[in-house]
Design a protein around this nucleic acid. Structure first.
Length: 577
DNA sequence: ATGTAGGGCGCG
DNA sequence: AAAGCGCGCCCTACAT
């Protein structure tokens, strides 16, 4: 990594009455220089400043501002996303009261919708186009940035918060870049999979052949030619008429009964799901030019996980993963972390026994070796139960065994649950906080504690306290796992860029194929990434993916003796082997 | 006609 | 053999 020759640390960008203004700040946040920039000059100016001075760009909203830059070939390395940072800082309870009160509520507004791949996007940078929000204005940007710096400094762990905000912002950049790059998607393979499962593509509106025949079979078995298969209440009545006494029409409940209608019905539901969620119309809507381009929403989940909007990017069914296919001459580097959450739990809790059990490749087998449980599937069940708060069933039965073998790990999640049940707030490793309970929750708890509370009120309050406890119990683990994953992709993003050379693509065309020649992130899902890379770079990319995972672990957990092994494959398609 | 709630199920 | 966390999206039913 070449250290940029630079005398500046930050460049804040915001709109003015007429165009843009850049405010250059030193590391201490002191203003060094101001510069007005016409809208049409903004992208070239950013490109030049990025190359010459490599600042951290400070702006209101990466999701709104980065796409048009990227569309003209301007890639940046680092930013500070004020909107995302604000959401994190606002949740901190350790801010001095006067600082808490000073926030501008406009920063609490929901995310802007990212709409900008086309040439039109160029103009969304223009403040006259009506696309800018109040928080884009340079005075608001500077005020908020100053507030955030104060808030970070006043917090109990500025170092951790800085890392969190840097990772969150890097994620926001990666999300925009992944949408622009897209996931290489082979339409013919997708169509073939659909045809194998559903039958050939029907005329629009018609049911695929295999589904239609199955529907006939089900209606025959139910002795009900007009039975509705798509309406749960109606289906329920049809089932009851032939003596199938289920309370819901879920698959697992149906499968507990024996009747000729059950098997085809379960199969029909599976097909129906595939057709409606990822059928031919999904293909038409979401795959263009051989790329699936979902909208990622960094920070979209309270735990810090990403959400997605449109296309169901986070729910691609396994049968369709074979449609994810590298371009000719390219490959996919597909990697996921083995048992990310239990490893995170071990490291957070400083639980050396669990860390020791994780030492091999398979943490669950390691847990079996300690003698805590008998089989791998028991180990998995028990650990998931511990992190999710299972109290009943097989999982709930197994959890107590872990308490003896891994007291520190269990103490961490148990304590998180206790705090949540009491109405408190918990934190991830880097300091993202769980949302506080709402006024309704508090009121119900208070009411239940009064002497004349009815038993129904007490029961309800107890139940919602437990619900909340399970949420905070999981929050610390899921949220810290999300931080690990963010650190991983943030680091990897830098390494991949370095592999592709330092040159920024010339902003020659509006379509700006920034990624047409370099290895790039193409997909990210909680604990898994897909890199699309030229075949010649395959091994380098694989090394980068592994090195980034080591960096992430070090950054979050220092030298705690635990690694996060990857399942990594260099392949043509993302289908599981 | 349009908006919302809930069932159901895909993913981690 | 099915409890316990977090999502998004489709569908239907039912509200306005």
């Amino acid at each position: 990594m070449s250290a940029p020759a630079t005398d500046i640390a930050w460049v804040a960008l915001g709109t003015m009455a007429d165009g843009w203004e850049a405010v250059i700040l030193d590391a201490a946040g002191a203003e060094c220089e101001r510069r007005a920039i016409a809208s049409t000059d903004l992208a070239p100016w950013v490109a030049e400043t990025e190359v010459r001075r490599a600042p951290r760009w400070v702006w209101s909203d990466t999701a709104a501002l980065y796409p048009p830059l990227l569309a003209v070939g301007v890639r940046i390395a680092r930013c500070h996303d004020l909107r995302l940072a604000h959401a994190i800082l606002r949740g901190r309870s350790d801010l001095p009261e006067d600082l808490s009160a000073m926030t501008d509520p406009r920063w609490d507004a929901p995310a802007e919708v990212a709409e900008a791949e086309s040439a039109d996007a160029l103009f969304s940078l223009d403040s006259d186009a009506g696309g800018s929000s109040p928080t884009d204005a340079i005075p608001a940007v500077l005020r908020e940035f100053a507030w955030q710096r104060d808030a970070i400094a006043a917090s109990s762990s500025p170092r951790d918060l800085r890392l969190l905000l840097a990772a969150e912002s890097a994620g926001a950049l990666a999300a925009v870049e992944m949408r622009q790059a897209g996931l290489p998607w082979d339409v013919d393979t997708h169509d073939r999979v659909l045809a194998e499962i559903l039958g050939p593509r029907p005329r629009t509106g018609a049911l695929p052949d295999r589904m239609r025949r199955l529907a006939d079979e089900i209606r025959g078995a139910l002795g009900d030619p007009g039975a509705s298969l798509d309406s749960p209440p109606k289906l329920l009545r049809s089932l009851h008429r032939v003596g199938i006494e289920v309370e819901t029409t879920t698959r697992w409940e149906l499968e507990r009964h024996t009747h000729p209608a059950i098997a085809p019905l379960v199969e029909y539901k599976r097909m129906s799901r595939l057709l409606t969620a990822n059928g031919w119309s999904w293909l038409d809507d979401w795959v263009q030019d051989g790329r699936f381009r979902p909208v990622y929403v960094p920070g979209g989940v309270v735990t810090g996980r990403w959400a997605s909007s449109g296309g169901g990017a986070l729910q691609i069914p396994r049968v369709l993963r074979q449609a994810v296919r590298a371009d000719p001459g390219w490959c996919l580097v597909v990697a996921d972390v083995a048992q990310l959450e239990p490893r995170v739990l071990a490291a957070m809790a400083g639980d050396l026994s669990l860390a020791a059990a994780a030492r091999g490749r398979d943490l669950y087998e390691g847990v079996v070796t300690t003698g805590a449980v008998a089989t791998r599937s028991d180990a998995k069940m028990a650990l998931l139960g511990a992190m999710y708060g299972a109290t009943t069933g097989e999982s709930g039965r197994l959890v107590p065994r872990l308490r003896r073998s891994f007291p520190r790990a269990m103490a961490l999640v148990d304590e998180a649950a206790r705090v949540g049940e009491d109405g408190g707030v918990v934190r991830t490793r880097w300091g993202r906080t769980s949302p506080p309970p709402g006024p309704g929750w508090r009121a119900a708890q208070k009411r239940a504690s009064e002497s004349d509370a009815s038993s129904a009120e007490q029961q309800r309050a107890r139940r919602s306290a437990r619900d909340r406890g399970r949420f905070t119990r999981n929050f610390v683990v899921q949220g810290t796992a999300a931080e690990w994953a963010l650190a991983w992709i943030a680091d990897l993003r830098g390494r991949l860029h370095a592999l592709g050379g330092d040159a920024v693509d010339p902003p020659a065309e509006a379509s700006g194929p920034v990624f047409s020649r370099h290895p790039h992130l193409a997909f990210f899902l909680h604990d898994e990434i897909i890199v699309h890379a030229p075949l010649s770079h395959a091994e380098d990319v694989a090394d980068a993916v592994r090195a980034a995972s080591v960096s992430a672990t070090r950054l979050l957990f220092g030298d705690f003796p635990l690694d996060f092994p990857l399942d990594l494959r260099i392949t043509e398609t993302a289908a599981k082997a």
